[in-house]
Design a protein around this nucleic acid. Structure first.
Lengths: 332, 332
DNA sequence: ATGAAAGCGCTAACAT
DNA sequence: ATGTTAGCGCTTTCAT
């Protein structure tokens, strides 16, 4: 493997000159530049990123900590983050926690400044106490959830408002017995979405019925299907359901069909996340659509600003816009 | 951030001794060991992985090069690979190529031994010529596609056999005008799946009709929907379709419904990949199910064996088993 | 058993 | 405009 010195020797110049050419420093005598470039191709030189970073005091990596890549939402998000990171010359290291609190703790704990220049974390179960001990040694930006009392940067949409918008839509199309699927003991977003749900109902003069609020543990298709099956067995089943993510919603649609219920005629369904699939399902899914590209870009840019040597700044709260995509699951 | 030297100074020993303790070298005087351990905790020392790797000549990373994480199949695969890599103390770096040939070339080309200890690549468009020039400087294992004439390790299922199995199933349920969606000019798997399709038809004494073989560019939902719409406009539309992945199949189901055709009564549909969703779609999707966990494990283990300093061995071809999951899209 | 010191490949003062 | 050189933090001979 050719080193800078090999190239310099071959070109008959110093390493400095080679370094200048490699790093795009402008003031190099054309003659020398040519010789260096020739030597570069002749040797097939590749910079040793590790050495460069050791010297520069950066690693060239950021970590992305998510529950599970097999969840379409996180797959899409990760894709966006990789793309956004590229523009800052960052490679993305992905860690999966499966939403387990100890694995989240480990993942964040292992984030030495030597491993990565920063991290984007989508926490699921981690709590303030877990992070209190370990001052983050690198910039950490929270994405989506923000269950922590810690002063960390956060990028996300307004979950209360989004949930309110979703339920408001169900009210607007005349539904009155509106259920929710996705209640969760530790997820902050679940709490917020529930709050938005409550707010919309209350504002419409409707009671929030506990039997219509269904919990979900993992937010997978099966959880949505099971919750829906139970809701439809109620003496007075709901005429609409607001699901806290698209997988729950798709599972719910499936269960409704299995039970012989028409969507949306008998029961309208709204999801959350706008997974690519939701435009193609049968029926297609009305859902809250966060601007995922913006989410990814904002998170990466925030890590970048923090990682910069510049001055400190107070933790930031970045709100990303969302829209409501109205599709067949709520329009006859 | 404390360095080895800081710890050594504090403990009153040399860096060598500290290094010995940190790396679990046994012969250290108990007295010194204690003092070093105290200094270690006092300073909160964390080894600089970059410096260590620079010295050791390994990086602790492997790269995973895939077209797009937002494709459920690759999301699920990536999840499995991260899990498998963990057992070898490897972190996974993910690169997206969007299936573009030049980006694949760049991604593979950037794979210096300084960046990663090895790589798992799911090529889509790259060709032998692209790799001919650059001898892979780190172990590269091909996953899925193997379009190259190069002697590289490969892990995958038998695509011809899988396609044959899928089409055979359609024949078994009595279909005779069987179409295929997913023909592609450069993808090796497309060619192989087409071969299996042909083989099954021919064996059944049926002609392969060119108008029933539809191309697809990106294998996304929309491609499947468009191809299906066109097939259904034929004077004699197909009574079954074999799609080269689940997204195409789900898009096809959508298009069939839009055109007022019943699945599976009017047209049966088989997919490929067994994305988690296919068990929950309406109708649920019959599909070829590769053992994804085995695929991931085999690929990582192969990289690990190659990366070991041990002897050379001939390029390996690892065949992973698959099953046919029969669901509603082919059973009335 | 431990210390001293070289050097992995690179960048950036500093010098010219 | 380019050469010289000191380190980035670590591991590892080579001494002792």
């Amino acid at each position: 493997m050719a080193t800078l010195k090999d190239v310099a020797d071959l070109a008959g110049v110093s390493v400095k000159t080679v370094s200048n050419v490699v790093n795009g420093y402008d003031f190099v005598k054309p003659e020398n530049r040519r010789r260096v470039e020739d030597a570069l191709t002749a040797t097939g030189y590749r910079p040793n990123v590790g050495a460069r970073n050791l010297r520069r005091g950066r690693t060239g990596f950021i970590a992305l900590v998510v529950p599970e890549l097999s969840i379409p939402y996180f797959g899409e998000l990760a894709g966006g983050i990789i793309a956004a990171a590229q523009r800052h010359d960052w490679s993305v290291l992905i860690e999966q926690t499966l939403g387990a609190r100890d694995r989240e703790r480990d993942a964040v704990g292992a984030l030495g400044p030597h491993m990565v220049d920063g991290a984007i974390v989508s926490p699921q179960a981690i709590e303030a106490a877990d992070l209190a001990g370990m001052a983050p040694r690198v910039p950490v930006v929270l994405l989506g959830e923000h269950p922590l009392a810690l002063p960390l940067d956060h990028v996300g949409i307004d979950n209360v408002d989004a949930a309110y918008t979703a339920v408001r839509h169900l009210l607007d199309i005349g539904r009155r017995r509106i259920a929710a699927i996705g209640q969760h003991p530790t997820r902050g977003t679940a709490t917020q979405r529930l709050a938005g749900y409550r707010q919309a109902l209350t504002e419409a003069g409707l009671a929030v019925r506990p039997e219509l609020v269904a919990p979900a543990l993992r937010y997978h298709y099966s959880d949505g299907a099971e919750a829906m099956a139970r809701l439809l067995e109620l003496p007075e089943p709901p005429d609409a359901v607001f699901c806290f993510n698209d997988m729950l919603a798709l599972g719910a649609i499936r269960a409704a069909a299995d039970g012989g219920h028409q969507v949306p005629d008998d029961v309208a369904i709204v999801g959350f996340d706008n997974a690519e699939l939701s435009a193609y399902s049968l029926p297609s899914l009305t859902t809250i659509a966060p601007d995922k590209a913006a989410l990814a870009r904002a998170a990466v840019d925030l890590v970048h600003r923090r990682a910069g040597i510049s001055e400190q700044f107070a933790p930031e709260e970045v709100r990303i816009p969302f829209t409501l995509e109205i599709r067949e699951s709520t329009t006859a």
